[in-house]
Amino acid sequence: MKKISISIFLLLFGIVLKAQEPTKVPDQNPDYKKSENKYTKGQEKTLQGMNTTEQKTYKAYDWTESKNEKKVERVAFRRKKQLARINNICHVRGCNNMNRYHTHPIFHRR
């Protein structure tokens, strides 16, 4: 009686295990579980980019654009330099001095 009940239990256990096992498709790679486990974990990050355009643009050299850029840079640098000079005068002589424009050597050159 005991033997019969054990064998029935083992049979049922086997059936349950077999039912839990995913059905295999013919010609399926036996190691498919490795890949399945790898790609079912942490795939959210990879899939976030779907349906989007990944911008990996580069800067093409354009003679005219490059010339214009250099011009803009030059003007900005001059302005910055001028501002720095004026601020320097304020720092040295004090901004409240109304005669600073006439006393500083930069303005003497004009």
């Binding site: 980019g49 349906n51 989007t52 990944e54 990996k56 580069y58």
Partner: peptide, 20 residues
């Protein structure tokens, strides 16, 4: 069909969604 990623490797900003 599912739409995946489109890579823009050009020199301009191009949004592929317009033609996709």
């Amino acid at each position: 069909v599912i739409v995946g990623m489109v890579s823009n490797k050009s020199h301009e900003h191009i949004e592929a969604e317009t033609f996709i």
